[in-house]
Amino acid sequence: MAAVVTYLVIFTVISSALAYDPDMLQDLCVANTSAGELDVGFITTANKLISKTVKKGEVFVFPRGLVHFQKNNDDKAASVISAFNSQLPGTQSIAMTLFTSTPAVPDNVLTKAFQVGTKEIDKIKTKLAPKKS
């Protein structure tokens, strides 16, 4: 009986050691320690925008698998350290996420990302807006 218990304990320990996620990193952003600020944010699966201005030396972590952005607030080049790594990234509708979040992703982020004007951004938002009954 003791041999069976010992075997089960060893099997459990080995199984646990082999059944881990080798990619435990979240996506993260570290602001350059000598230059400008970054606007960063992500959109939750409940379609809520969480954003912040990251200042010199601060860190911002993006939860795995969520749509996120980083935008330089200066006209000079910015440096960031980013890690994008996930074994199970999941999926999310980017168009609905980016154009219908609450609060809204700033228009200047969307115009820069999609290289279009605010009129086009407004058209997309209007078309994707939930229909009122």
Rank of each mutant, 00 (worst) to 15 (best):
Ala2His: 02
Lys52Met: 09
Val13Phe: 13
Asp74His: 01
Ser34Ala: 10
Leu28Asn: 13
Ile94Ser: 11
Ser86Gly: 11
Ile94Lys: 07
Gln87Asn: 03
Lys132Trp: 06
Asp107Asn: 14
Tyr20Glu: 00
Thr53Gly: 01
Leu49Met: 10
Asp23Trp: 00
Lys48Phe: 02
Ala78Thr: 05
Glu37Gln: 08
Ala35Thr: 14
Val9Cys: 06
Met1Ile: 03
Asp75Glu: 08
Gln92Lys: 10
Val59Trp: 04
Lys132Leu: 04
Ser82Cys: 13
Pro130Thr: 04
Ala31Asp: 01
Gln92Ser: 13
Phe84Ile: 05
Met96Ala: 13
Tyr7Leu: 07
Pro106Ala: 15
Gly36Ser: 09
Ala77Ile: 07
Val4Thr: 05
Ala35Leu: 02
Ala129Leu: 06
Gly65Trp: 10
Lys48His: 12
Leu18Phe: 07
Asn85Cys: 07
Asn85Phe: 00
Ser16Asn: 08
Ala129Thr: 04
Lys52Asp: 12
Ser79Ala: 15
Asp27Ser: 10
Gln115Cys: 04
Thr100Val: 06
Ser51Lys: 06
Thr118Cys: 00
Gln87Glu: 03
Phe42Asn: 12
Phe60Thr: 03
Thr45Gly: 08
Ala35Glu: 08
Ser34Ile: 05
Gly41His: 00
Ala3Glu: 07
Val9Ile: 13
Ser16Tyr: 13
Ala83Val: 08
Ile10Met: 05
Leu128Met: 08
Gln92Gly: 11
Lys76Glu: 12
Gly117Arg: 01
Ser101Thr: 11
Ala104Cys: 12
Phe69Ile: 02
Ala104Ile: 08
Thr126Ser: 13
Val54Asp: 02
Lys48Gly: 01
Lys112His: 04
Val4Leu: 10
Asp122Ile: 00
Asp107Ala: 14
Ser16Lys: 06
Arg64Glu: 06
Gln70Glu: 14
Ile81Thr: 14
Leu38Asp: 07
Ser79Trp: 03
Leu66Ser: 11
Met24Phe: 00
Leu98Asp: 09
Met24Gly: 02
Ala3His: 07
Asn85Pro: 01
Thr100Leu: 03
Asn108Asp: 15
Asn73Ala: 04
Lys123Arg: 08
Ile43Leu: 14
Asp107Lys: 07
Val9Arg: 09
Gly36Ile: 01
Asp75Met: 09
Leu66Val: 14
Val5Gln: 02
Lys127Tyr: 11
Gly90Asp: 11
Ala17Asp: 13
Glu58Asp: 13
Ala3Cys: 01
Val40Trp: 00
Gln92Thr: 12
Glu58Tyr: 14
Gln26Lys: 12
Ile124Ala: 09
Ser34Val: 08
Ser101Asp: 11
Lys55Ile: 04
Phe84Asn: 12
Met96Tyr: 12
Thr111Glu: 05
Thr6His: 04
Val109Ser: 04
Ala77His: 04
Phe60Cys: 03
Ala95Lys: 08
Phe42Ile: 05
Lys56Thr: 15
Lys112Arg: 10
Ser79Glu: 08
Ile94Tyr: 13
Phe114His: 06
Val116Ser: 00
Pro63Leu: 12
Asn47Thr: 03
Leu38His: 06
Phe114Ile: 02
Gln92Arg: 07
Pro106Lys: 04
Met1Gly: 10
Ile124Thr: 14
Thr53Leu: 02
Gln92Ala: 15
Ile81Ser: 13
Phe42Trp: 15
Ala77Val: 09
Ala95Met: 13
Lys123Ile: 08
